[in-house]
């Protein structure tokens, strides 16, 4: 490429013969969104260790912990289950939640790290509005979580953990007169669980994003594990049904009930069986709106926490 051609390609509008700057249209927003999501996915795929550990973690719980626990804990028939279920089946939605939780916290930490190294600042000097940039980044994190979730479900399928409710029918009529698409199990559950995963992933991601603006310095992942991930995971319905917890400690039951992660897990559990848990849905939605609002506020240049607490050194 000639020097003239390069100069022509990159000439700013205020240079002689330069083209004027234009306002961003809808397509530009889409390009920006796609760029942010694509970067998250590319980065994840390039970090093979992260992919592997993200996959091994829930599988260890499923293959070892759940197998051992199977004899200890009998699950009675509670919605959405129609029959007695094995512990592995019970714990699977909890492990899907675990994947989302770890993924969100890891991306939150990478954001604290990003903010210190400057990658977050590269994002924030983009001319698009902050709420749009932050939401796109969240959706990028969810895209990465989806890769993990479906790989996990694929492996779990061979462990005979699959949704086993009647085919999902989209169309009109019933019985022999049915006209439309019929999606047989297990695919029906894999499809109906998708919106629940996306919503829960967004909610946990927004919580993590808010945390990333509050945490001033990157300490280590162990701190986040101890103070955020473990309490949220264990004080929830991921590993044991809430009524079991109530039997042993009413207080703990209350704590679990007020844990947003419990509702994320229940939303996923019901959706896996093609059902909507309205309470869980409303709680997850409410938390999503609240955390996302708080994060956008925290990153707002004039009101936010970054401005108040001081910026970089130097």
């Amino acid at each position: 490429m000639s020097v003239e051609a390069i100069a022509e390609t990159l000439k700013p509008p205020n240079a002689p013969g330069g083209r004027a700057y234009r306002r961003h249209g809808l397509l530009a927003y889409f390009n920006c969104f796609r760029g942010i999501v694509w970067r998250e996915v590319l980065r994840f795929l390039h970090q093979r260790e992260r992919f592997l550990s993200a996959l091994v973690r829930p599988l260890v719980w499923l293959f070892i912990f759940a197998a051992g626990f199977r004899q200890v804990l009998g699950i009675s028939i509670i919605p959405p289950y129609q029959t007695y279920v094995l512990y592995e089946t019970y714990v699977t939605p909890g492990l899907l939640g675990m994947i989302l939780l770890f993924n969100a916290m890891q991306s939150s930490l990478s954001m604290v790290y990003d903010r210190e190294t400057g990658a977050m600042r590269t994002l924030l000097v983009s001319p698009f509005p902050r709420w749009f940039l932050l939401s796109s980044k969240l959706l990028g994190g969810v895209a990465v979580a989806l890769l993990q979730v479906y790989t996990f479900l694929f492996i779990a399928y061979f462990w005979e953990i699959e949704p086993d409710w009647p085919a999902l029918q989209i169309g009109v009529g019933q019985g022999d007169d049915f006209f439309g698409i019929s999606i047989p199990p297990p695919f029906n559950g894999y499809i109906t669980v998708l919106p629940a995963i996306v919503m829960s992933g967004l909610m946990l991601g927004a919580l993590a994003l808010f945390m990333s603006s509050v945490i001033r310095q990157l300490e280590n992942f162990a701190g986040v594990m101890n103070f955020v991930i473990f309490p949220m995971f264990f004080a929830s319905s991921a590993l044991y049904p809430l009524w079991k917890i109530r039997e042993s400690s009413p207080l703990l039951y209350e704590i679990c009930w007020f844990n947003p992660f419990t509702h994320a897990v229940e939303l996923i559990r019901f959706a896996f069986y093609g059902q909507l848990n309205v309470t869980a849905f409303l709680v997850v939605l409410g938390c999503l709106v609240f955390f996302l609002g708080a994060a956008i506020f925290a990153y707002n240049p004039s009101k936010g926490l970054i401005a108040r607490r001081g910026g970089p050194r130097g």
Binding site: A28, N31, C32, W38, R39, L42, R43, T122, S126
Partner: peptide, 17 residues
């Protein structure tokens, strides 16, 4: 971990290209 080109096209996307 990304290539030169991938880094640059990401940035171009941030500007709506």
């Amino acid at each position: 971990d990304l290539s030169l080109l991938q880094n640059l096209t990401y940035h171009a996307a941030l500007h709506g290209l």
